[in-house]
Each structure stands twice: as C-alpha cells, then as structure tokens.
Nucleic acid binder design. Structure first.
Length: 667
DNA sequence: GAGACCGACGTTTTT
DNA sequence: CGTCGGTCTC
C-alpha cells in the first residue's frame, strides 16, 4: 500500500530522494520496535510507525492519543526525517510544546526542532514571512475578539445604522456572523439565511458593513483571528510558488484534535499536505467547537480529501476505571456517532459515579468543598482533583466557598487577563510602536485622555495616519496638548529603548495615572500589570510578545502562575478548557437540565448533540472518581421556569451505573 | 463634543 | 450584575 501511494507523488520529487529516504526503513523499524514496542500497544505501534501516506487515527478518550503522537514524532525523526520538515498542528500551543518536550526526552533533542503550534500561530508565522504577496505588512497587528468588535462598532456607528426603530444586529452578533462566513467558507447570504433569518431584510447593510470592515483592516494592517486562516488559505491557493515552498518545507503534517478543525482549516491541511503525508488524529465523539465553526464532518470527509487513507483506531482506554467508562458510554450511546468504536479498559471496577442532589447552589458548593477536604485527608493531592462546569460563571459561588476553606485553586477558561480593560489599555501603547497604523489601539489610548472623546479621537487618528504621530503636537489644544505631549515623549523614549521590559515600564509610567483616574480598584489592576511585566521577561522582542499574547491569551499566564507557586492547586475549569487533560477525581457541577444542556439549545438537535459530547468529554477526564452535582429549584429568569431535574444526558442512566446521593447537613 | 446618568436587557464555550 | 444605547447637561 505504501509503495503504491508513494509512487504517485514521487514523480514530482525525483526518484533518488525517495529511495534515499526510505532505504534504511526496515532497519530503522527493527531498532525502533526493539526500543519502544513494550511502551505501546499494537494499535498504537502501528500508528506510530505508519507509512507516509495519508492516515486518519480515530482515538477514543484516554486511549493514549498524545502518547502515540509523541512516538510518531520520535519515529519520524529516528527514521531520518529532518525535524524541521515536520509540522505539528495542535489545539493549543501548550499541547505542542508538551509533545515536543516529551518526544525529545524519548528520543533526543532533535525533536525540539519540529515545527509546531496552533493553526493560528502557524498561520501568523507564515504570513509574517510571505504575507507580502497578499499586500500584508510583516508588522501586522492581530486583533482579538474584542478588538475586532471595537472596529465593527466604530464602522457601525459611522454608517449611521443606529437609526431609530430599525433593529440592526449588535457588534457581537455581527462579529459572529462575519466569523462564520470566513470559517465555513460560506457566503454572507448563506450564513444570514441559515443562522440569522430575522436579519434578512437588512442583508444589504450587513454586506456593506462587512466589506468596509475588511477594507478597514487591510488598510491598517490589522488581522483578526479568521483572517489569519483566510489569508493563509489565500496564500496557499493563489500563490503556487509559495505553496510549493511550504509543501517542500513541511513534508510531514501531524494534525491533532482534527474533529475540532473548521472548514477552512480542513482546506489548509489539504493544500499543505497535497503529497498525502498527513496524519490526522481525533475523535468525532469529542467534537465540541462547532460554535466557532468547527465541523466534525471534516474528520468524516478526510478519506475523501486524501484518497488511499489508512484508518486506524485506538480503542483501549488507559485512563478510566470501568465504572467511569460505563457512565461515559451510557451518555454517548444516544449520540449519532459516525465512526463506531468500542472503548474498553482493563481497569476493572472503581467507585460508582455519584449523582448528588443539592437543595440550592450554596449547598452544592459546600458539598464540593467538603468532599475535597476529605479527599485530601485520604491522601489525594489537590493537583489530582478538578471541578468542571459548562460555563465560566458557574463556579463563582464555589470560588468563594473554596477561599473560605483555604483551598487553593487555579481557574481556567472564561475571562482572560489579557482581555481586561486595563491590560488592553497598556498593550495598546505598545502595539502602536510595532504597527503605527493600528487604529484600534490609537483609538483606545487616545480616549483615555480626559477631554478626548470619539470625535476628537477619530480626527486625531486620521491626522496620525496621514502625517505621522508627531503631527498631533500641533493638533491638540488646551489641557489636552500637555497630555498629548507626554504621550509622544513616552513613545519616542520607548522607541529608543531596546529592552522590552524597559518599554513596558515606560508605558506603565505614563498609563498608571490615567488608570487611577479611570478605575477605583486600581491597586488590584496595578498588580495585573506588574504580572504582565513578569511574563514579558521571557520574551526578546516586542512583536513576538504581542503576537503571543493575542494568540494564546491565557496560556502565557498560566505558565507563569504555575512556575511561581509550587503550592498544590486544585483546578477549576470550563469543560472546553479541560480538553485533553485528566484527573483522579472530577466534580462536574451544575449538571442541571437547563444549565447543562443550556435551555437555549433545547430546540436545536445539533446543538443538543454537541452539549451531549461536551458531557462525554467532562466524564472521560476522570480516572477514578466522579461526582456530578446539581442544585434544585433554580429559577431561570428569561424563560421564567424552575429547573430541578438533573441533566437529560444522565437522567435515564440506570442506578447500577450512576448512584444517587442525598445530602444531609451535619454541621 | 465630552461625559454623566437612566432605563432596558440578557447564552455559553475559544483561537 | 454589568453592559448597552439613548438622553441630558455642561
């Protein structure tokens, strides 16, 4: 099979190279097998040493997917593939780092040279290098979600849409809509028709806003998350020499979490991996990102994109006790999965999962906190315990209770430090140093100055765009003139410094008085900014620092938080952020029908199915014990309904699998 | 034109 | 509870 596949593409590359690369394969395989066969099961070993042709690996939860990918990397490098020519695409950058590190430990340092990252970060890197072909300056600024919404809001106002009586979509809705157009490679008409039919009568206005939004970004070298992918796609599909150069550079593609790629990412893989040297790994049962355009049909379509695809399955679960798996299987059984697989474990028995009913939210929090204290007494470290939930705010009450019990925790998911107003304020001063035409940042920092509002701000930005920032000196009058002068002096000084931390300190010195003016809780916010300085110390250049913060807002922070405290911590996490992780004990709170699944998904079959998969992901994070809890008599204001039932995904699970617990207050 | 104030309103998950 | 949009005053 391998030869038949290979022969097709090696015409392009030359016979000599092909033979050279593959000649020592049998010998390599023998030594590799000897060294590592005992570390992998047969299925995993087959995947790790699979031939170069297209491969799709359906890896069940806890089946050692990451481990297998690490051995795959090690195998390729061991076999003599230059590490630089391997591209590893993962869901988070942390996942990529982790894998390369472990592969390096396994084999040798060469594995660290493998190229890896998220689709977005890889796209950013490629675009900085080749974006010129699309008219993109290498210093382009990456807009995060709220930056993008700021621009949309600005244009929305400019166009005079805020007329009375007419309902025009809000910035968040518009941003979602535009995002779907880009991610799913659909037309605006299609998206409006499918998802926002109530705005059909405004479609012309929406379209013109979309056009203006795109132009606004292009003119100012601004790139939003979707543009990163769309532009990379354009680069690959419209610029043949660049595509050839990249395909030559990245001869082997490894794509993790393939079920959560969206249409355009699928196309990028197809274009980059046109040789067919692509291995995609994923689990259709764990697809939980369709809200941002992920299409798990991608994983089903893979064999069509890449004729001759070998299908592998990893079905042995090494993570969970049988009792946990029974629950997971019961939950997912109702779902219409496309790749049938049979997950099994050899870890017999285990504690039966518990369904805990609490009288109200407060009792739920007290139950979780107390149980965690007990578990710690029993010798289970806090780092082996996690509390998971559907939405970030679900943990608010628990966070207070944990603080009361002196239980240290780390929260993942939800609001990020880099998304807070004061951090964005400070960053905007740095961003214009890299990209002087970054109007989003200019707008942000000018409006901080007392006496400068939206109108004056816009005029000033226009001035800067035409004549450069020094032109502002003559422009500002009265009390603003002094503030502008201080701003320009600070920027000039920062420009002269070559140390990143110096630059940030200068920006802080300028910004802190403004911040104190704006926020009453400035002491807390000052701490955040100092924390940012700590993060910055790991970076050499400003562009890299800004780019990373825009692409991975939370991780850069978690790393530092994890490094500076050796204290053991409990993890509180949204289920989305818990993907790929595992703990001995898991609490799933708010397993209340109406919260999880959310009441808003009740009417949509596909969304409901995604919620179910989300529940499956939560359960399969567990190694030994899981407690699902829900409070009763919760009043849902919008729908004016009382919620008292456990999640529909677990309600009909028999008592042999899921045990009901009643709480009785002893204290 | 800036900024304070008031009433209305509401899903959530992330690169 | 916090954000959004509109209105009012300086």
């Amino acid at each position: 099979m391998h030869l038949a596949l290979g022969s097709k593409d090696f015409y392009n590359r030359g016979v000599k190279k092909y033979i050279l690369r593959n000649q020592p394969k049998q010998a390599a395989l023998d030594t590799f097998r000897q060294a590592y066969q005992s570390s992998l099961n047969e299925q995993q070993f087959q995947v790790a040493t699979a031939p170069d042709g297209p491969a799709l690996v359906i890896a069940g939860a806890g089946s050692g997917k990451t481990r297998t990918l690490i051995y795959r990397l090690a195998w390729l490098v061991h076999r003599g593939v230059p590490p630089e020519s391997i591209l590893l695409l993962t869901f988070t950058r942390r996942a990529a780092h982790e894998m390369l590190k472990r592969a390096a430990q396994l084999l040798d340092e060469r594995c660290q040279r493998v190229s890896g990252g998220t689709f977005h970060s890889v796209a950013a890197a490629i675009l900085r290098r080749y974006g010129k072909a699309l008219g993109l300056a290498p210093s382009f600024t990456i807009l995060d979600r709220s930056d993008a919404e700021d621009v949309i809001q600005l244009l929305r106002g400019e166009m005079g849409f805020s007329e009375k009586g007419k309902r025009f979509p809000k910035k968040g809705t518009l941003s979602d809509l535009f995002s779907k157009v880009q991610n799913r490679l659909l037309t605006l008409d299609e998206v409006v028709e499918q998802e926002y039919p109530h705005f059909t009568d405004q479609i012309e206005l929406i379209r013109s806003l979309f056009t203006r939004y795109q132009k606004y970004k292009t003119d100012r070298h601004l790139v939003d998350y979707d543009d990163l992918l769309v532009d990379l796609y354009a680069l690959l599909s419209e610029h043949r020499p660049i595509r050839d150069a990249l395909a030559e550079q990245y001869r082997h593609l490894l794509v993790d979490e393939y079920q959560d790629t969206n249409k355009i990412q699928g196309e990028i893989v197809r274009l980059l991996g046109r040789d067919g040297r692509v291995m995609a790994v994923g689990d259709d049962a764990q697809s939980i990102y369709s809200f941002r355009g992920a299409d798990f049909q991608n994983i089903l379509r893979f064999p069509n994109y890449f004729p001759g695809t070998e299908l592998y399955k990893l079905e042995e679960n090494y993570r969970s006790m049988q009792a946990i798996l029974d629950l997971a299987n019961a939950v997912i059984a109702e779902s219409a999965r496309q790749y049938p697989k049979h997950l099994f474990t050899r870890k017999e028995g285990g504690m039966k999962p518990a369904l805990v009913r609490a009288q109200d939210e407060s009792e739920q929090s007290r139950f979780v906190a107390q149980k965690i204290l007990e578990l710690r007494e029993e010798g289970i470290p806090l780092s082996e315990i996690a509390v998971l939930f559907r939405s970030s705010f679900h943990s608010f009450d628990l966070e207070i209770e944990l603080a009361r019990c002196n239980l240290p925790f780390e929260k993942r998911g939800g609001f990020k430090l880099t998304e807070t107003a004061h951090v964005k304020d400070l960053m905007s001063h740095l961003r214009i140093l890299v990209n002087p035409s970054d109007a989003v940042s200019w707008n942000r920092l000018l409006l901080l100055i007392p006496g400068i509002g939206p109108r004056t701000g816009q005029k000033m930005i226009a001035k800067v765009q035409q004549e450069g920032r020094e032109a502002l000196r003559g422009f500002a009058r009265g009390p603003q003139a002094e503030a502008i002068s201080r701003l320009l002096d600070m920027l000039a000084q920062a420009e002269r410094s070559d140390s990143l931390t110096d630059r940030i300190e200068q920006a802080m010195e300028y910004y802190l008085p403004l911040m104190k003016n704006k926020y009453d809780d400035y002491p807390k916010r000052t701490k955040d900014l100092e924390h940012l300085l700590v993060i910055a110390e790991r970076y050499r250049t400003l562009d890299r620092f800004l780019s990373d913060l825009a692409l991975e807002p939370e991780e850069s922070i978690i790393d530092v938080a994890g490094a500076d405290s050796d204290k053991e911590k409990l993890v509180l996490s949204t289920i989305h952020s818990a993907k790929g992780l595992e703990w001995r004990v898991v609490f799933l709170i708010w397993a209340l029908d109406g919260y999880f699944p959310s009441i808003y998904t009740f009417t949509d079959e596909a969304e409901l199915d995604e919620e179910r998969r989300l529940m499956y992901v939560a359960i399969t994070r567990t190694k030994e014990q899981i407690y699902l809890s829900y409070p009763i008599r919760i009043f849902h204001r919008t729908s004016r309904a009382f919620l008292s039932k456990p999640s529909r995904f677990i309600e009909s699970v028999p008592e042999e699998i899921l045990e009901l617990w009643m709480l009785s207050e002893e204290n």
